[in-house]
Design a binder for these strands. Structure first.
Lengths: 337, 337
DNA sequence: TTGTAGGCGTTATCAT
DNA sequence: ATGATAACGCCTACAA
């Protein structure tokens, strides 16, 4: 590939001059400018970003590591688009590395982006503990932000949605509509999100003096199949319920299908509520009600903070975003209404 | 950050020696090796990949640019996971850049990865023309592969799934089951995939001496809403149909919902077929039949070829993968069976 | 087995 | 307005 030296020779100037016209630093006559541009054109020269970054000690790059488990959801497209767009609006580039399916792989991805000397890092984790991430932030000079987790120590370096509060709010709504026997199909309980949504459910029941019954809780794995299986388990336990909350829309979808299969009508006999508001789910019959997480706002806040820090700013306040309860046909009044 | 020189000083050796123990090239006594490792440990040294790549003229990196429009689909998770995994198995790293929502942005993303000196590039395009990509491959020394397009000139530098053939096959199956009046909701017709699926539909009708009726074709935009709207349009035209093909599962989902809304039963009155086999769609009632594109095989073949080329190999043969027709409850026999 | 020195392609600080 | 030249952090002959 043509280098800056090639261009310089062809234009009959020194490397320094070429560098000047490229970076815009320093004076250079219009005439030589033209010659340089022509030489660039002719030689097909392209700057070597590695060399440039090495010299300037800055890559103008933000690294993003996202757990592979997120790509299934609706959120990823939005997240990545806005992240890339905002980063570029600020004159930088977004680089993405896959967090794959384990803590070790998430760790490696972060380390790689760090070794690549990204100016800043965003982590959308699945397996890494908050303590480890606090540790990572502590031990690196680059600005690092975490999405979807609430950090203990670096509370201004994370943006999260309060899953427990959202779940609490949604279940409270069911109770307000007269439901007392509310079943819950959890997500994987090794996932903080899964744990929090369950906690919100329990809290809402307690708050309303309704006993938490283990027979009404069944563990799923986020997939439609496990949602359907969850319904089977609940029915086998013969613990009657008039409402069913699934920890995400995929499981809610599987659950609805299985209810139909068993001749149980939604929402006439059972109201159903999911999480995440996936595009497809509302097209089920009946349209699924859901709690939507505001990813767009979250990622925008994240990038803003990062850019601010890169410019030398300091954040002290923390920020989180509430989930939005979207009520559709799948919710009706319960027997105690 | 600690540099190699810091480590060298601390260990009481030269930079060269540190480099030797890090790269594994050249002999180093066990004793100094230990000292170096200890110095690395103590200083928290991390190699600067920019400097290393600049010196070795190789980044050990494969760049992937994916159109943002793909993230909605089921395919992305699979694609990225296998791409990252295979790349790492071969001792390299995958870097992803967003192609966003236009040809210009796809172009920029590619150029960026090239400027970053990725050893090879994979393009999963949406807006770039095949001619332009042929051009790009032509004018760069790095191996470049294109997924999901059939290139004209560099036919061995692409891996595609024959959308037209898959569509042809699927529609033929409907005809074989006795359907004659088959409606089609297209995807965006500025998308090659959308165009080809429509072409396959028309070809299958012609092949079976069934007239192509414009009244049975309506254009959608890939979303559930447009699928539902498509059904409305078809019903308004009063062109009766016993089968409906939608160019993807999202539209099929919307279509089924709308059919139900209008009191038309699926599959008793209308058989429905989609494309892409999304995880959620089969959980609709009735379970949606679909044509599944074998992305995993496609990306694996792509990476294989790239690695092979990086090792100096040359490919001459082209390769494509057939879509797989998955028949579920939404398909029944038609009136002419 | 280890050290010296030159080079990778830039930027940036001096002079001129 | 332009040209040397020294970094940037690493690798790699070539010497010793």
């Amino acid at each position: 590939m043509a280098t800056m030296l090639d261009v310089a020779k062809r234009a009959g100037v020194s490397k320094a001059t070429v560098s000047r016209v490229l970076t815009g630093n320093g004076y250079v006559s219009q005439e030589t400018k033209d010659r340089v541009f022509q030489a660039i054109e002719e030689s097909g020269y392209r700057p070597n970003l590695l060399a440039r970054s090495l010299a300037t000690k800055s890559t103008q790059t933000i690294g993003l590591v996202v757990t592979n488990t997120l790509y299934h959801g609706v959120y990823f497209s939005e997240l990545l688009f806005h992240a890339a767009r905002m980063t570029e609006d600020k004159g930088r580039r977004l680089i993405l590395a896959d967090g794959k399916h384990s803590a070790e792989e998430e760790r490696e991805a972060i380390q790689y982006l760090l070794d690549l000397r990204c100016d800043a890092i965003i982590i959308y984790p699945r397996f890494l503990s908050v303590d480890e991430m606090d540790e990572i932030i502590q031990s690196h000079s680059q600005p690092i932000m975490v999405i979807n987790r609430r950090l203990r120590r670096h509370s201004s370096h994370c943006v999260w949605s309060d899953q427990k509060a959202s779940s609490f709010h949604a279940v409270s709504e069911l109770i307000a509509r007269g439901h007392r026997d509310i079943a819950f199909i959890t997500g994987s309980l090794d996932s903080p999100t899964g744990i929090e949504r369950l906690a919100g459910y329990k809290a809402a029941l307690s708050e309303n003096n309704i006993a938490v019954r283990d027979a009404l809780i069944v563990e799923g794995k986020w997939t439609p199949v496990t949602g359907a299986a969850g319904v089977e388990t609940l029915l086998a336990r013969k613990a009657g319920f008039t409402a069913l909350v699934a920890s995400n829309d995929d499981m809610a979808t599987g659950a609805i299908k299985q209810l139909h299969q068993r001749g149980i009508r939604v929402p006439e006999q059972v109201s159903v509520l999911g999480f995440d508001d996936t595009a497809l789910a509302p097209y089920l019959i009946p349209s699924l009600s859901s709690v939507k997480i505001p990813v767009t706002e979250m990622i925008k806040e994240t990038i803003s903070r990062l850019i601010f820090m890169l410019d030398g700013g300091e954040f002290t306040c923390q920020q989180h975003f509430p989930g939005e309860l979207i009520v559709r046909d799948s919710l009706t009044r319960g027997p105690h209404a």
